[in-house]
Design a binder for these strands. Sequence first.
DNA 1: CCAATTTGTTGCCAATTGGCAAGATTCTTC
DNA 2: GAAGAATCTTGCCAATTGGCAACAAATTGG
Lengths: 198, 198
Amino acid sequence: MSSLSPERSLLVDFITEAYPMSVSLASDIAGRFYPVRLSKGAFFLKEGTICNEYLFLTDGFMRSYAFDPDGNDITTGFHRRKQVVFEVSSFFHRIPSRENIHAITACTGIAITYTTLNELFHTLPEFREFGRSILVGGFTNLKSRMLSTITETAETRYLQLLKTNPDIFQHAPLRTIASYLGITDTSLSRIRKEISGK
Amino acid sequence: MSSLSPERSLLVDFITEAYPMSVSLASDIAGRFYPVRLSKGAFFLKEGTICNEYLFLTDGFMRSYAFDPDGNDITTGFHRRKQVVFEVSSFFHRIPSRENIHAITACTGIAITYTTLNELFHTLPEFREFGRSILVGGFTNLKSRMLSTITETAETRYLQLLKTNPDIFQHAPLRTIASYLGITDTSLSRIRKEISGK
DNA sequence: CCAATTTGTTGCCAATTGGCAAGATTCTTC
DNA sequence: GAAGAATCTTGCCAATTGGCAACAAATTGG
């Protein structure tokens, strides 16, 4: 019986749910993660740098964003507790990131480096499967978001987000939610007005 | 010196470009793939079924599509020779696919099953890396497509597609290209008219 | 607690895109 | 090669969304 930190306990639960394996194995894995703290506004990843950490967020909210050709800040994703946070392309291809990831509230989590992750992947097939599951899950989510962006109206997408991710609205300004939905803050404001009058 | 089929030779080149490994190892891997032929219009994957093949397309064009809530056929992707074709979520999670994939021209390729792929992943770390590279590449492409869908006008996206993937226009009807771009065929037609008058 | 900044809303108008239906064009298929 | 089907274009109008600017509201930082 080891005495895992609460953060590592959360990760053990998360790992075993994502891919079946023994708790002791998951605990070994979680033991390799080190604590991370980010104060509100702090960056986890800055564009132009290589993402070198694979973070399991245990508390707080984070936001990924990129700048479009006109210099507008576009939200590419929100991240909450019990999610894995990293920039896929930069992390795995070892190239500078085009995205930023920052804490929109104070955050705590536990992380491993690229090197450690690869060691673990190499020695533990189960952790490899876990890693693949995270990747496939992210890919699948994005595919469904893409489809809804193409086929649904902004109002529908907004209502959907409100229903499935209400917590985002308590932590992120509407402006950043608007760009996540693919619209301007002006349009989002109008949509909200429209809905409130029902 | 083995005598690989032309399809397998193509795959060897493709593998070694995606992830550095010896040609003999890549040849061993390619040797595990079996030939696949699809006549024009034939399905590689039907929605509701589990994607069980990991296909390396050596000739022809394919299209992935799903139906939106109104029953409209929405193109989720085009695939050309020297690309890996499969539905990520269905294949790795072993769940029924919500997408269809069909041949829009006669196609040839070579494939492996889910089981074989896992055997190879298990025994060959290099092939695992190759597999991850494919996954990460697909993810990255989708992220950039998502960003351009949100930030760029339909006209810009059309011109971009025309420049980077002109071959698609020789094989896919405009209607399916329109839904890929996230617009209706009517709008695409107008955009084309607008551009031609310049 | 107040000034300064950020965030959200609204009005006005323009640009983009969609829906529908008719017609033109192209392509299959027998 | 002709009939039928699928594809593409166009006109008309409506709905959605954006751009800009002003204002209001909320938040932040001394």
